[in-house]
Write a protein that binds this DNA or RNA. Structure first.
Length: 438
DNA sequence: GTCTACCGCGCG
DNA sequence: AAAGCGCGCGGTAGAC
């Protein structure tokens, strides 16, 4: 039986996932609120069953190759210290220690005051300093040889300090790390992962995750789950058809907005279309689209317009969703999962626009989250796990299992099938299987 | 010493 | 000023 405090925590979170309201610690009262808000089904059929599943995943953990971690640590340490030396030399501040390379504030001073690199095209931070983020460094890359070294240094230092060292530290005697999946940590219904966060492991670090002897790691990825949800929820004919035919959705989008045959779509066109597709889910405007695609704002505007005239129902759905949010003060996904948006009627235009973007994103992200949670519950229920398969990680659109090689084939097809039938949309759900944690 | 805000960046 | 959603975390800097 789940702990009562955990139930209270979940109930409060379902009532107000942004945790802005002060709610009673009384489960009876909270459960009444859940009923009033139509959240009973999610509470009983998704969140409560998930408690023990997440607990089990935490206990099992995932194995890391500690020897490999040690080797990588040594290698990266060498590389960062070499880069460090070169950077200090070029900065005119040798020896090391002249300034702190990991301080954006100090680095900015060195680059723009001491070395007098032109600030043209460099954005500013919240506190008014010149930014040293990747984007800014890339725009000034050709202006001084030190920039390339800094970019390299940043990359390696990040891997070392955020992934390699913490994984070494957190591995237990069986070389396994035990992340905590936080059930009430997001405003959309997703899970989060902490201590360590195993939902943001970059590809270069993934090889350190391994299976126990006689087992294999297997990843099951939902293909384009958010776009499938969008197509289905917005009831967009063209997009639904594309998924029913299992077309390359970004290519199809490109063929629509560029008015060309789907077979003639160039790589570049597909790239624009991909940005557009994801941008639509996030409520991206012309400015952001221009910035991330390199188009002018005018061109970006035209493409967005073209997109919405090709996929007309998406625009209609977005407007309907925003209007409902204005009237009701909240948005909800198909399962009734809710998010309150008190700011949506703000007199401050920027604040209201921000709430509008949240309004059109939550029903999509939140339904995708429900789908993978339902899949987890069904897999667990089906006793798939009993005979040599363990669910280890849940990474938004992906589940990672550790499976006994003796039963590998059967388990893989079984799990894939369960995931693909976890929820009925107007389009099929598709799962890609990869051996290892790719 | 502990805290918080900020910067920056990894992932879906 | 910002100008695309959702997270967690390591580092610095300043307050206490």
């Amino acid at each position: 039986m789940p702990d009562i405090d955990r139930k209270i925590e979940i109930a409060k979170w379902l009532v107000d996932p942004d945790k802005r309201q002060i709610l009673p610690d009384d489960l009876i009262l909270l459960e009444a609120r859940l009923s009033d808000l139509g959240l009973n089904k999610i509470y009983k059929e998704i969140e409560l069953p998930l408690i023990e599943i997440l607990e089990k995943m935490h206990k099992i953990g995932i194995k890391v190759d500690v020897t490999l971690l040690g080797k990588l640590s040594k290698k990266f340490l060498k590389e960062t210290s070499s880069l460090e030396k070169q950077i200090y030399k070029k900065s005119g501040f040798p020896p090391a220690g002249g300034f702190n390379l990991n301080s954006p504030k100090q680095l900015s001073e060195i680059l723009f005051e001491k070395l007098k690199i032109s600030k043209e095209g460099v954005s500013k931070t919240k506190t008014g300093n010149y930014s040293t983020d990747v984007g800014s460094l890339l725009t000034i890359q050709g202006r001084h040889p030190i920039i390339n070294l800094i970019l390299k240094y940043r990359k390696i230092f990040k891997i070392q300090s955020t992934y390699i060292e913490p994984l070494r530290k957190l591995a237990d005697k069986n070389q396994r790390v035990h992340t905590t999946f936080v059930q009430t940590g997001t405003a959309t219904g997703r899970l989060s992962s902490q201590n360590p966060n195993l939902q943001n492991i970059p590809p270069s670090v993934r090889p350190v995750f391994i299976a126990e002897k006689g087992y294999k790691l297997v990843s099951f990825d939902y293909s384009q789950i958010e776009l499938r949800v969008l197509a289905s929820v917005a009831n967009d004919k063209k997009m639904i058809e594309a998924f029913q035919k299992d077309l390359d959705i970004h290519k199809l989008t490109a063929s629509q907005v560029f008015n060309t045959d789907i077979h003639e779509v160039t790589k570049e066109q597909r790239g624009f279309a991909k940005t557009l597709n994801f941008g639509v889910i996030y409520g991206m405007g012309p400015v952001a689209f221009a910035r991330s695609s390199g188009l002018s704002i005018e061109e970006a505007k035209k493409f967005i317009q073209e997109y919405f005239s090709d996929f007309a129902n998406i625009k209609i759905w977005q407007e309907k969703t925003i209007n409902q949010a204005r009237k009701q003060g909240y948005v909800e996904n198909l399962n009734g999962r809710k998010r309150w948006l008190p700011q949506i009627n703000s007199m401050n235009n920027w604040v209201a626009r921000e709430a509008e973007r949240v309004a059109i994103n939550m029903p999509i992200q939140g339904l995708a989250a429900d789908i993978i949670k339902l899949a987890m519950i069904k897999v667990a229920k089906n006793n798939s796990l009993a005979g040599g398969a363990r669910m280890l990680l849940s990474i938004h659109d992906e589940l990672v299992f550790e499976i006994d090689m003796k039963v590998l084939k059967n388990k893989v097809s079984e799990i894939k099938k369960i995931m693909e039938s976890a929820y009925n949309l107007k389009v099929p759900l598709k799962v890609d299987v990869t051996m290892g944690y790719a």
